[in-house]
Each structure stands twice: as structure tokens, then as C-alpha cells.
Computed example of a mutant assay.
Amino acid sequence: MGVRVTVGTREANDAAIALISEHTRRGLSPAAEATVTRLREALHRAWPEHTDPVLGISRYALLTPGKLLRPLLLAAAAGAVGGAVERVVPAALAVEYLHVGSLVHDDVIDGDDTRRGKPSVQHRFGVPDAIATGDALMLRTFGSVAECVQRGVPEAAALAAVREISAAGVDVCRGQALEGAMAADPDRPLADYLAMIALKTGALFRGACRAGALLGGAAPEVVDAIGRYADHLGLAFQMHDDLLPYLSDSATAGKSALSDLRNLRPTYPVLLAHETGTAEQRARVAAALSGTLPPEQAYPQLRDVLDETGAVKRAVEHAEAEVALAKSYLDGLGPNQHTAVLAEVADLSVDRRR
């Protein structure tokens, strides 16, 4: 007999959806909110309660108060080029499966106990089931994209979207490996770090946007423009994500502010501080990332250096510049509610308090 893994009663789930919707209303425009609501409802229908452990744990991982950012990007990209959003909903959910599956594996690699404000999969269910669940979610991705054909998307477009999402998944893995190689090394150039986050974070943004444009029937030059938008969006998003431990509490960040330090991971503001700091300040950064200090002691030391060098302020400015670049690639698209959503997502990427 399988182990029953559920996320609570139907009433509890409905209450959770209502709470999420209220949170979303405070941050998104009506057009973006309507798309997110449609996607969230489709996600709940696709993952009913199940006695199978892997399917039940997948439901636990997926049905959390995430913003469904990548699915929203795919749906908005399709709509921005004149496609029917309803036809691409399965593909939009597919990029969430790939994203969440990679997060489940990330938490195993990093040993993180919290994800999106609740116990991570590996912490609650154990490492073996977490690995199996992450695998299952990522494999579900491609079947879900194929479902778009049943909704009227041409087979050639669906195949092209599969290629884009598959390539993005490989790039995410490449970025993960590069990030591991940079551990405890604040001497790495910022260019190396930017190349890494373009893979680890930006690739799935790019894959979602390009796939959405392809599914929506866009011409190659339009697909490329939306891809460039996503490239700069990904950089802005990760730069700001790196700033969250120094701008907000763990409830806002969704994970411990000490996670990066615990894993000896240099992040964008830290590398900025090391690059521009004095020899004494660089030595303090290196000591904080050496693993010789407990994270609880290393964190205030590192924060002091970031304050002294102005690295946090400059990192914010750099993230905002990437947002402006991202939005510039939308100028050639016809103005409609979906193009406006893409611009809105870019602005929200550096203001996640809403």
C-alpha cells in the first residue's frame, strides 16, 4: 500500500488559494493576476491528491505560494505575439515542473531545510524521495509541452518549444556546476559570475519566453527579441535575489539568509565588494567565505564590508539597469496587455516586496 501524501483538505487548499490570490492582488496588475489565477487553477487540476509517494510529494512541492513567474512569462510571451494563451497553458505548467524539480535537487545539494517559507522536500521527506521527485517533475515537463498540440498548437511549434525548454534545462545544470566551482573563491571575476547566473537563473527565463513566442507563432526575429528580454530579466532577477539576505528577512527571501554563506557561495554584491574594496576589506570577505567561521558570525562581518564599500547600493543600481535593458527589447512588439505584463514582470523582479 502506498503512503498517502496530501497537502490538506479541499477546504484548506481553497483557503490557501484565496490567501495566495490576495497576496497576488497586492503585487500584480489585473491582467497578470488573471493569468496567474488561470495557471494556478490548472496546476491544481493537474495535480490532485494522490496515494503514490512521488506524485504526492510532487504535489507538495508544486502547490506552494510561489508566484508562477516562469509560467506567467511563457503565457505572456505567447499572448504578446498574438497567440492564444489557453492553448499554451500545459507548456506554461511544464516550465514550472522543470523549475521546481531543479529547486528540489538544489535543496538536496545545498542541504537547505526551507523552501518558499515551508520545509523543503528533502527536509520533510528525505533525500532519496526528494531526488526521485525532482527527476519525476523534470521528466513530466516534456509530456506537458506535447499536450499543447491537442489544444491546436502546430506540431512543429511544439517541437521547437521542447527544444528550447530542453536546452534551458541543460543550461541550468551547467550553471549549477559552475556555481559549485566558484565556491569559497571571491577572486573570481564578476564576468565569470554573470556567465554563471545567465545559465543557472537566466536560462529558464529565456527558455520560457522563447518557447512561449514559438508556441504563439512568432517570427524568428521576434522570438530572438523576447529571448534577449529574458536574458536581461534573468540577470536582474538573480542580482536582486542575491541582495535579499541584505535587504530583507528570510520570510521575504523564502529561505535562510545564511544559506549562501553556509555553502561558501560568493554572490553578486559580495563579489562587487571584494572587487572594489581595500586589501583589508577583501581579506574580511575571504575570511567570511573560508568556512572557518560559523555562518552566524560570518554574516555580520560580510554585511559590514558590503555597507562600507557601498556594494549593496551599486548592486541595486546594476539590477535596475538590467531591467531597463530587458524592457527595451519589448519596444518592437505591438502594445497589448500581454506585452504590458512582460514589462511589469521586469519591474517586479527588483521589487519583490509587493
Rank of each mutant, 00 (worst) to 15 (best):
L72R: 01
D347C: 06
L98K: 02
T133R: 04
L306V: 09
E41Q: 14
R354M: 06
V145W: 01
T114N: 09
E96R: 03
A321S: 13
G180M: 15
A75I: 05
A161D: 07
G79Y: 01
Y60Q: 10
V312N: 09
T114I: 15
G27P: 02
A157E: 11
A158R: 01
V127M: 13
R352N: 03
T201L: 03
A158T: 05
T252N: 11
A132I: 14
V305E: 09
A257N: 15
V104W: 08
A61C: 10
L243W: 02
L55D: 15
V149P: 00
Y246Q: 05
D331K: 12
P90N: 08
A326K: 06
A225P: 01
V350W: 00
R116D: 06
P119W: 02
H274C: 05
R151E: 07
Q238Y: 03
L333I: 08
A230I: 03
L306E: 08
D331P: 01
P186T: 07
Q150G: 15
I109Q: 06
A195L: 09
R45E: 15
R284K: 11
D129Q: 14
E11F: 07
R352C: 05
Y268S: 07
L214P: 00
A181I: 08
D112F: 03
A156S: 15
A257P: 12
V121R: 01
V85K: 04
Y268D: 04
A75H: 08
A343P: 04
L214R: 08
P128D: 09
V149G: 00
R59I: 09
A18G: 08
H232R: 12
L190T: 09
L244N: 03
D331V: 14
L333E: 01
A236K: 05
S120C: 08
A183G: 07
Y193L: 13
N13R: 13
E11P: 04
T292P: 02
A177S: 14
C148N: 00
D347M: 04
A177G: 11
E41F: 10
R26K: 14
P295D: 12
V323Q: 10
M138N: 11
L103R: 09
V153Y: 00
A198Y: 04
A321W: 02
P335I: 10
S256E: 09
G227P: 07
L93D: 04
R4T: 15
P266Y: 07
T276C: 08
S166A: 15
P245K: 07
G332K: 02
E221V: 00
D187E: 13
T35L: 15
A84S: 14
Y268E: 06
L302M: 14
T292E: 15
A251S: 12
W47D: 02
V145I: 15
D249M: 12
R174K: 10
E280W: 11
E41P: 02
A236P: 03
P186N: 09
G143C: 05
G111P: 07
D260N: 12
G234D: 05
L264F: 11
R140C: 00
D129A: 15
A273N: 01
T35R: 14
C173I: 14
L348K: 05
A157H: 13
E317V: 12
G152M: 12
V305D: 05
